Simulated scan of single mutants.
Amino acid sequence: MMADFFADTPTPPYYAVVFTSLRTSDDDGYDDMARRMAALAAEIPGYLGMESARDSLGRGITVSYWFDLAAIQRWKADVEHLLAQRLGREKWYAAYRTRICRVERAYGFER
């Protein structure tokens, strides 16, 4: 269970893209696109993993992890991802924020 939830990230430094969103009620095609974007991101050189959660009110946070800023830029510029971004603004998101962070330190606990 834990291995499926946490991204397998290396020793820092690396980068995190934090995507916080509020969904609309329009679900038409969203789940398929979300699965496609997760699979496509995993193909980008420098992709390290992803963690995501959404509540019943449509508030969500997805954190994707990347080796460097160049990998994030490749993801941002991907043609299919650009289409998903456009559809997100037009249909699926009432609002969102994207934040790019450098991870300097990471630690955790598992029982």
Rank of each mutant, 00 (worst) to 15 (best):
Y96R: 06
V103I: 15
F6T: 15
H81R: 08
G108W: 08
Y47E: 03
P45C: 06
T62I: 10
L48P: 05
P12R: 06
R102F: 04
A70V: 05
R59F: 08
S64C: 03
Y93L: 12
D68W: 01
W66T: 02
R74T: 00
A41D: 04
G108V: 09
R102Q: 14
P13G: 10
G29V: 11
D31G: 12
R36C: 01
F5R: 10
G49M: 03
M50P: 02
L82R: 15
W75A: 02
A70T: 04
V79N: 04
R35Y: 11
P13D: 10
F109S: 09
T20M: 10
Y47M: 04
G49D: 01
A7Q: 04
D27G: 11
R97G: 11
E51N: 07
A16D: 07
G60L: 02
V17T: 10
I61W: 00
L83E: 14
D4C: 03
A16I: 05
S52C: 11
D55L: 09
L69H: 02
R105S: 12
V103G: 02
F67N: 04
E110Q: 09
L22H: 14
I100C: 11
R99T: 15
S21R: 04
D32C: 09
D31F: 14
M50A: 13
A106C: 10
L48C: 09
V103R: 04
S56G: 15
Y47I: 03
R23C: 05
Y65F: 06
R105W: 12
I72N: 00
A106N: 09
R86H: 07
P45Y: 10
W75D: 00
L69F: 00
L57V: 00
A16V: 08
S25Y: 03
R111S: 07
D55S: 08
G88I: 03
D55A: 08
L87D: 06
V103P: 04
E51Q: 13
S21M: 09
Y30M: 09
D55Y: 13
P13H: 06
L69D: 00
V17K: 07
D27A: 13
L40P: 06
D27V: 12
Y107G: 08
I72P: 01
S52D: 14
V17L: 15
T11K: 07
R35P: 09
G46E: 11
R97D: 14
L82T: 07
M33R: 11
I61H: 01
Y30I: 06
A106I: 11
G108M: 09
P12S: 03
M1F: 07
T20P: 02
R74P: 03
D4F: 05
G29H: 13
D4W: 02
A84Y: 00
P45G: 04
A70D: 08
W92I: 02
A42F: 12
A41G: 06
G46A: 08
A34R: 12
D27L: 12
